[in-house]
Amino acid sequence: MELSLQTPRATDHLDVLESHALFIMREVVAECERPVLLFSGGKDSAVLLHLAVKAFAPQRLPFAVMHVDTGQNFPEVLAFRDRAVARVGAKLVVASVQASIDQGRVRDPGPMGSRNRLQSVTLLDAITTHGFDAAFGGARRDEDKARAKERVLSFRNAFGQWDPRAQRPELWQLYQGKVNPGEHVRAFPLSDWTELDVWQYIAREEMDLPSIYFAHEREVLARDGMWLAVGEFVEPRPGENVETKTVRFRTVGDANCTGAVLSGATTLEAIIDEVAVANVSERGATRADDKFSETAMEDRKREGYF
């Protein structure tokens, strides 16, 4: 028997991953009262939004899209967020870390300080305020050793915490998202995708992405073994040299803790070639926030980080 999609092509592992993700999204929407899709403007959440549209086509998305805004974004990423959300006609909820600071929910780390860890409080507050009981995230198990252990549907207690020692069994494709009031689940439809799968899928689907994923010239400085983009949130300290380099970003987090990689890849094809032979992991290359301890990610997940 032949697969006959209208646009004929051979089926491959991307089709398997794609259909599995669509299945997960429909299960969560059917089983939970108020799901929301966490959208950072990065490539993984862009793929997530693309999949959500496919899962419910031709209807509109049956859930809102939420951006936890640290106020330290790359402007290109914010522009992409607004473009992407407008195109699919989704409702955008912005949960602001600045508002959490203004309300005294968290302490201001100062204009140059990292707001990465503060996001957890803002996110959990927003989940409570809006009564969300499920949040889709774009996390992948190949990103980190704690994520490698997490279920597709990951249960969070009323304090938003993940208990890695007592995860619900998750058998077959029987995803079980029932929670009591105040609790919620995080749903990770991209769990089994690798970085390379994500890029291949973006290329296959001819998706739009923030421009900073492609090679461009930028003023950077070397700090903590990374190239940081000089700008509003990163200023040179004494002894640091500002240089102009051709770079691109492998992940997009906050402007002050996301490193660029030296690269001339201006097309998806060139990026895929680079990813296929990369010898440093995505987070290792570009995220200062994961470097503090051996189990940095696990500790933050326990606190409610996505």
């Binding site: 697969l3 006959s4 089926t11 549209v53 086509a57």
Partner: peptide
């Protein structure tokens, strides 16, 4: 599938 029509599906 995803808003596109097919004649058969695997």
């Amino acid at each position: 599938f995803g808003g596109e029509s097919l004649t058969s599906a695997p």
